[in-house]
Design a protein around this nucleic acid. Structure first.
Lengths: 154, 154
DNA sequence: GGGCTAAATGTTATATTATAACGTTCCGTC
DNA sequence: GACGGAACGTTATAATATAACATTTAGCCC
């Protein structure tokens, strides 16, 4: 939900996310195959959003459709989010909860934090209603500086 | 700011936008060259966000960098916005005012409406502060159904 | 106007992101 | 173990975007 210490031990986060994904897939009757699991793990290992071709390279011998299919699956089941601005992907911190993606993206270190703020969604919904528009999905991507990088600025 | 009647006469809108762009460029000491002007006009003529390669084709004999350079100029001077979700561009309804892009995108007809709602920006800024994050730019893109297309649904 | 300079444009090549199409393998079910 | 559908492999290509360098143009000073 917020920015982790950049030096924290990320291993347990990844392990926890994979476990949560396993459970979510069981719950949904979806198959978290080896490839899908590996892609999810790679996404989580990266603290910054990671692109499809970076994943592809990390996977070793694989062609683009392999990675895109895995990403499609993970997106469909709410296990990752896509960052439109970056054409890249991040692990979802709250699988199982329906929610729009709201992100804070540090332009210095690349770190991403997921928000889950109803007041943002409400503000958009209200503004949309004024135009008679019905919102079905919402992208919110704020670029700026994370706490750690603000300190490092001159 | 809102969705126009899909059958309205768009010509005057385009003409007005071009005039406003001329003035904004004068004010800024920027050169609205022939290519830039033509690209801006093409962007405005399209009701829906239009992609770089569609513009390229409409321009006739031109190579990608020509169009991308014109788009870069228009973006830099706030005359158009980029829709990240669509990799496409729309005319800015309020050149001269600094403002983040907030858009309503109809998934049926493709129409785009620009919002300019402070409460959305405020909500994001407040949520970001809770994480100690400093927002410098903001993308808000809501997908859904415009008034006209809601009527046409079963 | 002539010459200078910086900006703008032209041109070619290539990088990056994403999908189409079709064949094969794997896995649960009967 | 045969069937059927999902998952995966493979090849090709579409769609989006930029790098690098040559040439032209426009503004400016004298």
């Amino acid at each position: 939900m917020s920015f982790p210490n950049p030096h924290h031990d990320h291993g347990p986060c990844v392990a926890h996310a994979l476990e949560a994904a396993e459970e979510e897939c069981r719950r949904r009757g979806a198959r978290l195959t080896d490839i899908r699991r590996r892609v999810l793990e790679l996404v989580w290992r990266s603290h910054a959003p990671i692109g499809a071709y970076a994943l592809l390279e990390a996977l070793g011998k694989a062609a683009p459709p392999t990675v895109y299919r895995a990403l499609d699956f993970l997106l469909a089941h709410g296990l990752i989010h896509r960052i439109e601005k970056l054409n890249a992907f991040v692990g979802c911190a709250h699988p199982g909860h329906a929610h729009p993606g709201q992100f804070l993206l540090c332009r210095q270190c690349g770190a991403a934090a997921e928000l889950n703020d109803d007041s943002i969604e409400q503000a958009v919904r209200v503004a949309a209603e004024h135009s008679g528009f019905l919102v079905t999905s919402l992208v919110v991507e704020a670029e700026g500086l994370c706490p750690a990088c603000q300190g490092q600025q001159a």
